[in-house]
Simulated assay, not measured.
Amino acid sequence: MSEFKQLSRSVQGLSVLVTGAASGMGRATARVFADEGAHVAVTDVSADGAKLVADEIGASGATARAWALDVGDASAIDRVVGEVAAHFGGLDIIVNNAGISVRVAIDDPAYEDAWARGIAVMLTAHPRIIRAALPYLRKSPCPRIVNIASTEALGATALHSPYSAAKGGVTSLTRSLAVELGREGITVNCICPGPIRTAITERIPEEHKIIYAKRRTALGRYGDPEEVAHMTLSLCLPAASFLTGAVIPVDGGLMARNA
């Protein structure tokens, strides 16, 4: 019988970069990691929003610093990733969370622009960030990549084709990079959130949220950003070293429900 191995469930002292961290799931992710003792790079297209979250974390005694980052800007990605690694003395975890709402009909004159921006922010940015971070991840004792997709990658909604295509691409990218980077001990996993209370869903009237959740989810409710953030944390634990290439719905049972 093999010896029982004690595997660490602590991210204490590890450095994590979170994109889209000024609100919603990104903000919750930054705070959850900080609460567990990680050093957090709070990045967002909103410089003020990122600073506010970093200040919130700092006020609790944890370590965080804000960077303004438009993930659609390739040169900004290279600069910010380098600055984060220099500031924290390395980089262990990447959480590709940044996203935008894209709702457009296929025959809308604005479709081409919506497609280009949606793919740039929610798909192309991911490998760019990973490529910039790879030299640091390769030196990490616990290299982790988590990509945030959506249940729109698993089942589609009308008028969301750029969004669905981008998120579907993220799931395939995750599997491909898990295979490519696995021999180096770098794990790559993906979370597909379902209906979550974020800035994107804020505009939906509360009564419509309730109707939808009761009709579509097994739990009968919308999820909170923290519930997604804790799954992200779980995928990044040192003990999660044999989990890679997974696409995990955090959706209250939406994808499990048939009717």
Rank of each mutant, 00 (worst) to 15 (best):
S60N: 13
A76Y: 07
G58V: 02
F33E: 00
A54S: 07
A54N: 05
E36I: 09
D70A: 11
V45S: 14
A41K: 03
R27A: 10
G82D: 11
A76R: 06
D70V: 09
G37K: 03
T43A: 05
S60P: 13
T29C: 01
L69S: 06
G49D: 05
G82L: 07
A68G: 12
G37Y: 01
K51F: 13
S60R: 14
V42G: 02
G37F: 04
A66P: 06
I77E: 11
T63G: 11
D55K: 11
W67H: 05
V45Q: 12
S75P: 15
V53H: 06
V53E: 04
D48G: 14
T29A: 01
V80W: 06
D44A: 09
A50V: 03
E36N: 12
V40L: 04
A47N: 12
K51I: 15
R65S: 12
E56L: 08
D48A: 15
A28P: 11
K51S: 15
G61Y: 08
D78V: 09
A28Y: 10
A47H: 09
A28S: 12
A59F: 08
R79M: 11
D55I: 08
A50N: 06
V45C: 12
D35W: 14
G49L: 08
T29Y: 00
A62R: 12
D48Q: 13
A66G: 03
A41I: 00
V45A: 14
A74H: 14
D35E: 15
W67E: 04
G61A: 07
T29V: 01
A74I: 11
D44I: 08
V80R: 04
D55C: 08
D44E: 07
A62P: 10
G58W: 00
T63P: 12
A74R: 13
A59H: 09
G49I: 04
G61W: 07
A76S: 04
D73V: 09
V81C: 02
D48T: 15
D73A: 08
A76G: 07
L69D: 04
V80Q: 08
A41C: 00
E56T: 07
D35S: 13
W67R: 01
A59I: 09
